[in-house]
């Protein structure tokens, strides 16, 4: 397993005003596996992803990335784990306004100590993958919402991330561009990474090997592994 959530609870606040964002979630994501998380607004999807990415810690239970309990790592180790192994597409993008597209995409690698030239080169390749090679020198406010989103995706995929976490990565994209992004994610996972995709769109969740349904902080259902497609056609006939 690249990612494991074991009996994870997350409560925001205390007493009367406490919000139980997650209430006992168990999920494992193996190499080569893409798991989609669906659920109504407020069901705990982003909370789950933040925990998986080590941006937040559980009130109870454990989160493991590549077998390491995140709670046992010190700040420095955790930061390193995040930069090196985890690619994250946030719901609110989080591009730095003062950096160009390629600088934004190269940032995690540079922070990790990679030489600037090499990092930029990899970032350019990632931008090319999302169809933005020509916009590499633009700043976020010089790009459309969908283009910014693709920069955020390039940033999450750059380098050798073993775990890719994406929170609504197709939000501002039209259906063909959205599909291109999913294909990138799928390819990365097929190459051996683990992926978690939060989405409202069933059509996009369908790219996953497993779809997990969250409601009120609890997993209420999961699709079973995908069968052979031929059965589907026979059933329709």
């Amino acid at each position: 397993m690249i990612l494991e959530l074991r009996g994870v609870h997350r409560t925001h606040g205390t007493g009367e005003t406490a919000v139980h964002a997650l209430r006992g979630v168990d999920i494992g994501v193996a190499p080569g596996e893409l798991v989609a998380v669906m659920g109504p607004s407020g069901s705990g999807k982003s909370t789950l992803l933040n925990l998986a990415g080590g941006l937040d810690s559980p009130s109870q239970g454990a989160v493991l990335v590549e077998g390491e309990v995140l709670g046992d790592l010190n700040r420095k180790q955790l930061a390193r784990m995040r930069r090196r192994h985890v690619g994250y597409v946030f719901q609110d993008l989080n591009l730095l306004a003062s950096l160009t597209a390629v600088e934004n995409a190269a940032l995690p690698l540079e922070l990790d100590g990679m030489a600037v030239r090499k990092a930029r080169k990899l970032a350019e390749a990632a931008l090319e993958e999302v169809g933005l090679a020509d916009l590499a020198r633009r700043f976020p406010d010089e790009m459309s919402g969908g283009q910014q989103q693709r920069v955020a995706i390039a940033r999450a995929l750059v380098g050798e991330r073993r775990l890719v976490l994406a929170d609504e990565p197709t939000g501002a994209l039209d259906s063909t561009t959205g599909e291109a992004v999913l294909r990138l994610l799928r390819n990365r996972v097929d190459a051996g990474s683990a992926g978690v995709l939060v989405t409202h769109e069933a059509r996009h969740a369908a790219w996953a090997d497993r779809v997990v349904f969250l409601r009120d902080g609890v997993v209420v259902d999961t699709t079973s592994p995908v069968g052979e497609p031929e059965q589907l056609l026979e059933a329709k006939a």
Partner: peptide, 21 residues
Amino acid sequence: VQTQRTSTIQTLQELTRLKNR
């Protein structure tokens, strides 16, 4: 509702696989 949703999304997964082949 949930039983139907799971089943329909499972169909969607199969269709998507088929399409991507």
